[in-house]
Design a protein around this nucleic acid. Structure first.
Length: 465
RNA sequence: GGCGACGUGGCCAAGUGGUUAAGGCGGGGGUCUGCAAAACCCCUAUUCGGCGGUUCGAAUCCGCCCGUCGCCUCCA
């Protein structure tokens, strides 16, 4: 397997540090609903997680919640509720949304507010080592005390200082120094510390949590490209300064950002679509396919047309993967008695899929291979060959990408009644009662059941949505 | 202003030195069919933003130009 390393700018062979792949993905600040930009990122890392397991790795996946920061405080104050009530509400919503998108849970979801003692410990350690200093209750990281600051974002300290747009805080030794600990302002939630009441800065929690739950060196650290600077750059600086273990992260993975029309979708611009809004209009599979149809590092522009196209594509895969039991036609000659020759060469597709995914998670290629396999299955089905094995492969590989078509085997209480109507309609058709037959098909269609007449009988299924 | 990414058919999007430039959506034609739907087959880029250069050979490497976008401030 190869993974692109943004520090070297090259794809590099993936060699995890131990038996278990240690994976850390930056989580959300729960002060508002998740939008589809978040969804894109978590779909991508979900596939990374699933694929690593498919390749036989054990994965330990940690993802944080930044449940204390300026925006949470501001929003909670505006609503007149405690900060923790607000964050709790949106953490719950986060899980609902991600479940709806079929995103596997991480192993651990630490929260900043529950890691404060460790955060204080790390800040203290950094001060002792000369990498941080306190100024009237605030603690800053001393960027100049490191020699490799900027290696991830390819920035030069001098250039940044020269062109800095940031207002220089006189308290800081150096404009780029960043807060590890913030003194509490009036009425803010705060924790006791050696520097007085305060709360953690933004970057420190990720370092603390990853060190605590995964160790000094992470195999994979993921997040959106907007986190490269300053967030991840600062994480590297403080983590490596604290542990002395370099590198802090072996493979950084940054997904491209989702655009909406002209601009990046973001909370501050207000041009966003929430996960809930999306799922009212499109299936989770359609969104997933949309995301996976391009390279994770490329930016992607959302469009309704794009999602509609994916919805049709999903349907195509789903039909090919549909098990023969769901071909419940009355005159079903089914899988029984079909010749076993000319089975689709399943192993080829699996191998091509693995080659594609091994190449820095080339999901676009992998998706193309799924469509190739679907065509092969349909062709073989028409020729009367046995397709169960090929369908099994299709469902398995689709499952590696987290597509729900893999789990299409629902049994509903309505099934016998649908069967009955399908049977009645078959007799009507035999009697050339087209009018009644069409009416049944149309009425079932309105109820969410589609009927298709094929040479081997009538096939029915529930519509996806 | 600094750093970085990208520009491939009607749309989306792989490919990054060498046989016919993946795949999806859309469009056209055909097969099947009571109709419909699905499926299958064929067609839909002599060409990869433009101009030069390197090479036996470039969409793929280099230079310049044009265009789009992101980051540099909270952000997946």
């Amino acid at each position: 397997m190869k993974i692109y390393n943004p520090i070297s700018g090259q794809k590099e062979e993936f060699v995890p540090g131990g038996d278990e792949v240690k994976m850390y993905v930056c989580g959300v600040t729960p002060y508002d609903s998740c939008h589809i930009g978040h969804a894109m990122s978590y779909v991508i890392f979900d596939v990374v997680h699933r694929y690593l397991e498919f390749r036989g790795y054990k994965v330990r996946h940690v993802q944080n919640f930044t449940d204390i920061d300026d925006k949470i405080i501001a929003r909670a104050n505006a609503l007149g509720i405690p900060a923790e009530e607000l964050s709790e509400r949106f953490i719950e919503e986060y899980f609902e949304d991600m479940d709806a998108l079929n995103i596997k849970r991480a192993d651990i979801y630490p929260r900043a507010t529950e890691e404060v003692p460790d955060i204080i410990g790390m800040v203290q350690g950094l001060i002792e080592k000369g990498h941080a200093y306190e100024v009237s209750g605030d603690v800053y990281f001393r960027v100049c005390s490191t020699d490799s600051y900027g290696k991830l974002s390819h920035r030069d300290l001098d250039e940044m200082s020269a062109g800095a747009r940031v207002e220089v805080d006189q308290a800081k030794e150096c404009p780029l120094d960043f807060a590890l600990w913030k003194a509490a302002k009036h009425g803010e939630p705060s924790w006791e510390s050696p520097w007085g009441g305060g709360r953690p800065g933004w970057h420190i929690e990720c370092s603390v949590m990853s060190l605590k739950y995964l160790g000094d060196t992470l195999d994979i650290h993921g997040g959106g490209q907007d986190l490269i600077f300053p967030h991840h750059e600062n994480e590297i600086a403080q983590s490596e300064a604290f542990t002395g273990s370099v590198p802090f992260v072996k493979y950084w993975m940054h997904n491209g950002l989702l655009q909406l029309g002209q601009d990046k979708m973001s909370k501050s611009l207000g041009n966003l679509i929430t996960v809930r809004e999306l799922l009212q209009r499109f299936s989770a599979d359609a969104f997933r396919l949309f995301v996976l149809s391009s390279y994770y590092r490329s930016p992607l522009t959302y469009s309704d047309e794009g999602l509609e196209a994916m919805e049709r594509g999903v349907e195509r895969l789903r039909r090919a993967a549909r098990v023969s039991g769901q071909w419940s036609g009355v005159r079903d000659q089914g899988a029984e008695g079909l010749p076993t020759a000319n089975r689709p060469p399943t192993a080829d597709y699996r191998q091509r899929f693995v080659e594609a995914m091994d190449d820095d998670f080339n999901t676009a290629q992998a998706v193309a291979i799924l469509f190739d396999l679907a065509r092969e299955i349909n062709r073989a089905r028409e020729e009367g060959a046995t397709i169960t094995e090929a369908q099994g492969t299709l469902r398995e590989l689709a499952g590696v990408l987290g597509l729900l078509i893999a789990e299409e085997d629902r049994r509903f209480a309505a099934e016998p009644f649908v069967e009955l109507l399908v049977n009645v309609r078959a007799d009507l058709r035999a009697a050339k009662q087209w009018h009644l037959a069409d009416m049944i098909r149309a009425r079932l269609g309105h109820l969410g059941v589609t009927l298709e007449d094929t040479p081997i009988g009538t096939v029915w299924q529930y519509k996806l949505r």
